[in-house]
Structures are given as structure tokens and as C-alpha cells.
Design a protein around this nucleic acid. Sequence first.
DNA 1: CGCCCTATTGAGGGCCCTCAAAGCTAGTGG
DNA 2: CCACTAGCTTTGAGGGCCCTCAATAGGGCG
Lengths: 242, 242
Amino acid sequence: MAPDLSAPLLRKLESIAVVPDADKALLRGLRITTRQLAHGDNLVSVGDTPHFSALVITGMLCRYDVVESGTRQIMSFHLPGDIPDLQSVFLSTMDHSVASIGPSTVGLIPHEDLQRAFERSFHLTSVMWRETLIDSAIFRQWIGNIGGRTAIVAMAHLLCELVARGRAIGLIKDDMRFRLPLIQQDLADALGLSLVHINRTLRQLRRAGLIVWEPGSLTVLDWEGLQKAGDFDPSYLHLVRD
Amino acid sequence: MAPDLSAPLLRKLESIAVVPDADKALLRGLRITTRQLAHGDNLVSVGDTPHFSALVITGMLCRYDVVESGTRQIMSFHLPGDIPDLQSVFLSTMDHSVASIGPSTVGLIPHEDLQRAFERSFHLTSVMWRETLIDSAIFRQWIGNIGGRTAIVAMAHLLCELVARGRAIGLIKDDMRFRLPLIQQDLADALGLSLVHINRTLRQLRRAGLIVWEPGSLTVLDWEGLQKAGDFDPSYLHLVRD
DNA sequence: CGCCCTATTGAGGGCCCTCAAAGCTAGTGG
DNA sequence: CCACTAGCTTTGAGGGCCCTCAATAGGGCG
């Protein structure tokens, strides 16, 4: 009997929508099989046709794709409560891969369970649809970030997004310290910049007194200042509070 | 009595999914009010809370946002049959703007009509959800395009995407001539490059014998070659045929 | 005909890249 | 206990892709 594996999902959904008791019951009724992933493990790969979607329970995952030149492009990071491949319920073939960053625990949910829950509750459907639409909004911001901002602004914006999302699900306390398994190469792959330039950009943010970057954690020293530096407005995350 | 305003929508949906007769009837039952847009007109703007979603009937629209530095970032182009702001049914506040490129005709559909149709048919819901998920896939490709490819590859990829989508809805015949109201500044805003560099990049593609770019139309001379030049694989568009 | 928008081309500069090497930390095994 | 290794971080130097500024040409329209 899985005690509370759907808890991170509920916490996430309640950060972006109202979830009535009936839907909570449906969520608890999902069959969830846990699976451990080590750093770098692929959960699903391009071309797969999975019959499960994975709920992040602990740790961090990313979506990525490899372009012809050989560089890895990361398109999103995922925190506990996210279902990075929820789309595979409706798009059978994966057009990108999903991998673990650091060790993580995911809960595999059969597509048929999700589909049955959706058919039973239109409201739950709309909440989950909303979730994927917020995903889209994050992609759009990512496009603007890579296409229209300089390295330092883009970096600050990306860190702001992670912190805002981490706070929304209670992963960050008042000390503004965020335990992240990210390494600088991940940031490089996410922003489309070189590792060397990522390093120099982080140094700039550090010297500006905005953040402390240590392997394994990010501490925000000046949340106002970081948002300003990153041209960051959290409204695109469509959080219910804040 | 609107004769067939939902026809472009149906054609689009049938390019990505099977649409049973019952759902076709629901689509025909939507109240659609046409509206003409001139070049550059905003359909909706950042911060709006629209009560309609717009179906593109003729012409072309784009989603965009303005970053702090003042540059406009285009995040997607939309052809007849697309509903660029379908998301506003579930995300009340616009986090980006939608504008017309060249003159266009859109059909405004009340959110309540869409919601009622979704509640009546889970299958229609899944088709429309699928549509927004393909939107997401396009955003992801766009991220990889801007972040990981050089100007000429990115440009070829973008043109491939437009052509592949245009063909899927029957907008392009065998002559591979695509009537597009795009100007070079639009391409610049989409790819995060300068107008000058767009011009030089188009010249390269022209001199390579891949395309003919004229104001108002794009002709593909070498479809195979253009796909190769753009590192393009259409599978992320999740089209039912081709 | 003149105006505005768009396209095109030149020249110089800057942001970021690649190549290269050294320091740091943690885990491993002798 | 400490050399050893592997992965990550940090810093330097030079080069290239793309940017900005600038100017000319072309085309549609009142």
C-alpha cells in the first residue's frame, strides 16, 4: 500500500489550482510504482512509446534533446510534483528525452489510470491540462530567455524561475537556500551557452552579491535584486498565491 | 448563420488526430464571430483576461513578448486552423501577446462554448489537449533551435517547420510555393538574431539553391536539402500522415 | 512624385566560443 | 593514511559569429 506517493503531486497541483476532495480521492486511487534513478539515467528517450507517465517524487529531472552538432539542449527542469512526460498520454512517441539530474525517485503511473481519472472528472482534467499549459508558458519564457537576453540576465532569470517554483512547493525555507543537484554544465546546456561562460556569469552574479553558488546548493542573498537582474516577473508561472 | 467557419479548425485537427462525427457536430455547434485584423494588430495583449479564444481562419498570427531590452521575441507562428490562445480557457491572464502578421481573419469562440464542448466529449477534449501539447513540442524545438544551432541551420529549421505545417493543412501545393506575409524582421524576432544577419543568412540559403525568398512568398527549391540544412525531423509535429 | 517600409550591403566592434591548463573535492584502493 | 583518479570548477588567451551603426537601393501607395 503506497502511503502517500501522490502527496507531492497534490502539493504541486494545489500551488496552481484548487483541487476538490473528489479529485484528491481520484489522485490517491492512481496506481504508482516507484523507481529510483541515478544521476544521468534516462527515464524515457527520443522515439520511445511509454505506457506510463512519471511523477517526480524526490530529486530533479530534465527534458533534453541532442541537436546535430552534438550539443545537449535542456528544455526544462522538473521538481517534485511535476509529471514531465504527462504529454505521452496523448502523444505516443517521445520527441525528446527525460533524464535524472542527481539521484531521484519517480512514481510511474499507468496511462490507463490517468485516462480513467480524466474521464471521471472534467475538473481534474482541466487542472492537469492547466499544468501542461503552464509548462508551455515556461517554454515560451525559455525561448525569450535564450533568444533575447544576454548571458547574465538569462542566468538570473533561470535561477529566479527555479527558486520561484521551489518556493511554491515548499522546497525552500526562509533562508532562501535551495538544494540543487545541478552542475554548471547543466546550466550551460539549458541556456545554450558554453561551460566557460556559465562559470564567468555565475561569478558576476556572486560578485554582485545576489547569490551564492556552491556545488549542490544555491542561496539567494538578494531576492529583489536577482529578480531585477533577471528581468523576472513570476506571473507566467500562474501560481495561485504570491 | 456562419456557413463553415469551423472548417479550418477541422482540417487542422484532422491533420493531427482522428475526429469522429459526434465531435465534428460539436465543433459546428460552436458560436464563432469573425473579426478582421490588420498587419500588426494585437488580438490579445499581456495582462488581458479574454473570454474568447481565437481560431485563425485566414492569414497568419504570432505569439510574442517584449523583453526588458526592448526586443520583441516571437515564440510561435500560427496558420489557419490554429487556436493560438486556446490556453486562455484555463489560464485566465495572458502571459504574452498575440498579433497579426499581415491582414488576417480570426473566429472568436466564447470560452463557455469550448468548455461545454469539452464537458460533453472527452475525446474532443483529448484532441484539443493534444493540440496544445504539440504546441509545446514546437516550443521545445524552438528552444533547441535558438540555443543550439547556428544561424543558418536555425533558419533552415524554422522554414522547414512552417512548410511542413503549411503542407499538413493543404496550404502548399506541389510547386512548394508558400504565400507568407512574413518580413525579415519577423524572422529576426523569432530566431533572436539581428535583421542584418537574417538577411545574410537568407542569402546563403538562396545561393545554396535551397529556397527563393521573396516578399510575400517562400518557394522551396530543394526540400530534401533544406531539411538536411536545418537538421529537421518532422516527427515532433506529430502529424497523422506523412 | 515623394514618402514609408523593406531589403541589401559594408565596416568595425563586442559577446561569447574554443582550446588549454591548473586547482579543488570526494571517493577509491593500496 | 595517503597517493591516485575522476569529475567539477576556475581562469587565461585568442578567435569567430553575430551585433550595431550606417548608407543605399527598391517597391507600393497616396
